[in-house]
Computed example of a mutant assay.
Amino acid sequence: MQRAIQAENYVQHAPVTLLRPGVDTENPVRSRFEKIIRNAQDSICAAISEIDGKPFHQDAWTRADGGGGISRVLADGNVWEKAGVNVSVVYGSMPPEAYRAATSNREVLKNKGDAGRVPFFAAGISSVMHPRNPHCPTMHFNYRYFETEEWNGIPGQWWFGGGTDITPIYIDEADMKHFHGTYKEVCDRHDPTYYAKFKKWCDEYFCITHRGETRGLGGIFFDDLNDKDPQTIMNFSEDAVNHVAAAYCPIIKKHLNDSFTEQEKQWQQVRRGRYVEFNLVYDRGTTFGLKTGGRIESILMSMPSTASWLYDHQPAAGTREADFLDACRNPRNWV
């Protein structure tokens, strides 16, 4: 508990860079990626504020173990109950269990034990947005760059990860074609195999295993991506994060004034409960943040303001709720 409290220090103004002068600033991948995620934070927050009519509150913080971040949260807005966009650049050393949480590549860590700490560098942008209206979808995105130094005989590693996914509570075919179509176009510009591969990966990653259903209706997701040179993969990551607003905002504008019933609002609360279950039980980003003594407010920003767990709640056959649940249990192709 004490370590987590000491891990952050609020600063009045966001620093020009969160990188270490002469160390990270001389690294073309680290320095460029920080610019990408900070520019994306600015542009996405501006697009969301323009729709909501309320500004984001900003906290800038530094971390005793190294690095820091900029958290922006729009709370109790006109359109969003809570929307957050966080940027962080952190470095230092982490326990081996945090390393395991950070990567999906379990083979590289096999039989390596828990001795020592792993030197690392991580930079990323993450966001979750929970609208008021049940006809407006929740949206999540995360893009990150990760490096480790040699540890227990494992050479230093680097990789990119991330993606953008959408969690409505009702199916609107046109919305899903727009959202998935936007990301298919992004993927196709960089590699024609990406969309099908990353869409499947998204459906599999965001699966609530104990429920046998996905958290939402997918998007793209990738991790441990290092099969091309870093600049090439970074170009893809930049294109993807820069299309968050284009994929999401038109859907919100279309539905923000839709009327809704109390039953529809209740279904939204039930699905938010599923969101909480995934994030606290399965999400590797949450696990990594907690195991590295990260900033708790930033880590748990993804939680909705309200959620519900109704005992053995089963939608009636033939309803829109049942159709949505079927899509979560049997992922569909939207484009």
Score class of each variant (00 low, 15 high):
D114N: 12
G113L: 00
I166V: 11
R132I: 12
P155G: 11
A115L: 14
G113C: 05
M176W: 09
I166H: 04
N142D: 08
W158G: 12
T138D: 06
A123P: 02
W159G: 03
P119G: 01
F146G: 02
M129A: 09
D114R: 10
T138V: 08
T148N: 11
P119M: 02
H130Y: 08
A122F: 10
I154P: 06
T164F: 13
E150Q: 15
G124K: 04
R106E: 07
G116I: 15
T138K: 13
A174Q: 13
G153D: 02
E149K: 14
N152P: 11
V108I: 14
L109W: 02
M176E: 10
E149C: 15
S126H: 08
N133W: 02
N111S: 09
W151L: 02
T148Q: 10
P155H: 04
P119V: 13
G162N: 06
P137T: 06
P134S: 07
A115F: 14
I169S: 12
G162E: 07
P168R: 04
G124R: 01
I171Q: 05
T138Y: 08
T148H: 06
F146C: 05
G161R: 14
N105V: 04
P137L: 01
G163T: 12
T164M: 11
A122D: 01
Y145C: 00
N133S: 10
H140G: 01
I169P: 15
T164W: 15
W151S: 05
P155W: 03
A115V: 13
S127Q: 06
P119I: 09
H140R: 05
N142H: 06
E150T: 02
F141T: 00
Q157H: 06
G124Q: 05
D172Y: 07
K112S: 07
A115H: 10
P131R: 15
K177T: 02
G162F: 02
P134G: 10
